[in-house]
Write a protein that binds this DNA or RNA. Structure first.
Lengths: 170, 170
DNA sequence: TAAACTATGTCAGCATTATTGACTTTATAA
DNA sequence: TTATAAAGTCAATAATGCTGACATAGTTTA
């Protein structure tokens, strides 16, 4: 008897990595790895009045210096009301600077201040340290596979969401 | 000039996958892939009064049928008060059954009811579908690398947290 | 130029999911 | 029998998301 949600392997050897159990293991791996992935920055953030949402904002402002508010909204995929709360705190606390657009004065370009860069580095150092040791332990070939699978997992998301994200990533 | 947070490659070829930029790309990849990874179940859950926390509970009760409440707490890494709210709803709604332990009557063993299994399958189908197509597109070697890197990312987390999780995973 | 649209910001209210702390009930162990 | 353990509960609080409504300034278009 084959349940309706069971994968039926056509060629056993080639499809073994696609059995339901393999997929469920991958799903749990994603869950636990993501937990580990965020745990170091989360610990650091406890010393501040900031949370994960602040980390994300700071990360992407650092990576795409001078990006517009609307760009950040597209990247994060949240509402402007949600982002605004976070951004307002960061700006009031002097970690982020919001400069009026030069071409279009309605736009605001976002930058990290020196203090903002300090926090970004602190968070990034912790997260990169874990990634580096994982990459090193797994080796270059594994890293290629890791990246490839993650890109494929993203793919559907990007198509169904904002198409601009892919450009922003690279 | 080399900043204090720059990786200094010893042998250029071998270390290229460990540059700060490569690591930051990996970090963003994790972020976006996780978003995609949760997006399908999240959509389904909007038709119910449930959220991601319910999904997790249902997933692990299905995967480790009859597990104790304390096991679930260890796996999820949340407080019993947080879990209790979610579990109470699932039990009241008839998706989860809580049976008194046979050896130790203080313990409660958790099971999905038929309705619980129905929901689990619905959520799991969506998530596995995305994983399957990603795995298929990336190929078996990439999947091996993917799994290896995720395990390494987890490692630190497990050591610093509940050691029992690793047993529970396999 | 006047009207429509765009980018940003803000207020208020609400939902989900997490936290801490205090306490109860029941059952097992010392 | 007293101490410990597993589970459940109440109350208060926090972070982060949402919707809806609205304001202000600047740009486009008719």
């Amino acid at each position: 008897m084959v349940g309706h949600n069971m994968t039926i392997p056509n060629s056993m050897d080639a499809m073994l990595f696609l059995t339901d159990d393999q997929l469920l293991q991958g799903i749990e791996l994603m869950y636990f790895a993501y937990k580990g992935f965020t745990s170091d920055p989360d610990l650091i953030l406890q010393n501040y009045t900031y949370g994960r949402a602040h980390h994300r904002a700071v990360h992407f402002i650092n990576r795409r210096k001078g990006l517009k508010v609307s760009d950040l909204l597209d990247i994060l995929g949240i509402t402007k009301q949600s982002l605004n709360r976070v951004l307002r705190q960061l700006i009031n606390d002097g970690l982020v600077e919001s400069r009026m657009g030069r071409k279009d004065k309605r736009e605001r370009n976002l930058f990290l201040t020196d203090d903002g860069e300090k926090l970004e580095r602190q968070l990034s150092d912790a997260q990169r340290k874990r990634m580096r040791s994982a990459y090193r332990a797994a080796g270059p070939d594994a890293v290629m596979g890791f990246r490839l699978v993650l890109e494929k997992i993203m793919d559907g998301e990007i198509l169904s969401g904002s198409t601009k994200i892919k450009e922003k990533l690279t």
